[in-house]
């Protein structure tokens, strides 16, 4: 398959921009990464083997750049000690028995059946709640759920141990779910 960098902007700029912005939630940064992706691709254009499509190739370059951002954002933090942005993380469970504390019981609030959900409302609140997550948690969560990345890859790329990975996954879901319940009207 041939490469034609003169067509890249017209063909892929919006696609790549969308790809970056859904994963970073930052316009400015997403733009920069699209630009860096094109420039990096030009540098190694002779290494494009045509095994994949141009778009797949460019997306792979962008993806690595996004992971770099994740890594930078969360470097020096260990998942287990990170805090929620702006709020203290509740103690959901009894210290001794591990039973839910009554105040934090999950309650039925209308999201149990995805088919009957108002997706617009749900999306809005979900995004709001995701923004409260610490950078490393959000990175782990996004890589797992958005890109279905294998757990080992996430651990290597973000430098978290497997046991820490599962702690992060667990705490992310507990907090996300609690936030949804709290903000769902």
């Amino acid at each position: 398959m041939a490469v034609d960098p003169l067509q890249w902007v017209a063909k892929y700029a919006d696609y790549l921009f969308t790809y970056a912005i859904t994963r970073l939630n930052d316009d400015e940064q997403a733009r920069d990464l699209v630009q860096e992706t094109f420039l990096a691709a030009l540098e190694r254009i002779d290494r494009f083997e045509g095994k994949s499509s141009e778009r797949t190739w460019l997306t792979a370059i962008l993806k690595n750049k996004i992971i770099d951002v994740y890594r930078k954002k969360s470097s020096g933090l260990t998942g287990a000690t990170e805090h929620l942005n702006g709020e203290e993380e509740p103690d959901f469970f009894d210290n001794v028995t591990g039973h839910w504390k009554a105040a934090h019981y999950p309650q039925v609030f209308g999201i149990e059946d995805p088919d009957r959900l108002d997706k617009k409302d749900f999306t809005r609140i979900l995004q709001l709640c995701m923004q409260k997550l610490p950078a490393l948690w959000l990175s782990v969560f996004t890589m797992k759920h958005m890109d279905d990345a294998p757990t080992e890859n996430i651990c290597t790329e973000l430098k978290v141990t497997p046991s820490n990975f599962w702690v992060i996954i667990h705490r992310t879901k507990l907090n996300l779910r609690a936030c949804l319940q709290k903000n769902w009207i």
């Binding site: 859904t22 999950p106 999201i111 149990e112 059946d113 995805p114 959900l117 997706k119 749900f122 999306t123 979900l126 995004q127 969560f141 759920h145 958005m146 879901k173 996300l176 779910r177 949804l180």
Partner: peptide, 13 residues
């Protein structure tokens, strides 16, 4: 709810 959240997150993206 956890399962719903997972599937909604995928759909959102």
């Amino acid at each position: 709810q956890s399962i719903t959240i997972n599937s909604m997150v995928k759909m959102l993206f």
